[in-house]
Amino acid sequence: MKMKLRFVAFLFAIGLAGVFTAMKPLEHGYKVGDEAADFELKNVDGNMVSMGMMKYSSAKGFIVVFTCNHCPFSVKYEDRIIALNKKYESLGYPLIAINPNDPEREPDDSFDNMQKRAKEKGFTFPYLIDETQRTSYFFGAERTPHAYVLKKDAGKLKVAYIGAIDDDVQNQKEKKEKYVEVAVDELLAGKPVTKSLTKAVGCAIKWKQ
């Protein structure tokens, strides 16, 4: 009888362990070298944008920046994001900006306000809203701004860089370490990216509650 009880307790423990393992959140968030999945998100002009669309058929890769309206760090980087696209779109690395925030938690980041900001600043690249937040979640974006450089490799999109745009949020240093630019330059030269991961400080993404 005692043995039987012990056995039942043992089975129960195994079952419990199973439940807890299943409860662990799924692994998400790309690492350098991972293959990135495409997305289809609404742009400020009302059209849907994906990396696989015709417009981008000749792109060699992408600079994807998770950013938003309200965050002071994102605001500091706006002009530099515009400059990045200006420099690299023609070289085959167009920039795509994605706002990951839940507008209910941060009304400044609503679609209307995104349209206003894109117009004010004259964004020359798509500024997409991630309404379901799935894209941001799958990428593993955590803050704004959070930059990813993707490289087309035999029809697949490989993550080549994750992190900050440069080492100077305040835009005061004469000599910056321009992480994203260096990464794209290295890819364009056919070299591996030397610094493929940095920490991006910024505003935590406002996930839906």
Partner: peptide, 9 residues
Amino acid sequence: ETDYNAWID
């Protein structure tokens, strides 16, 4: 210190 990667770790 806004070069965060220099000290955050």
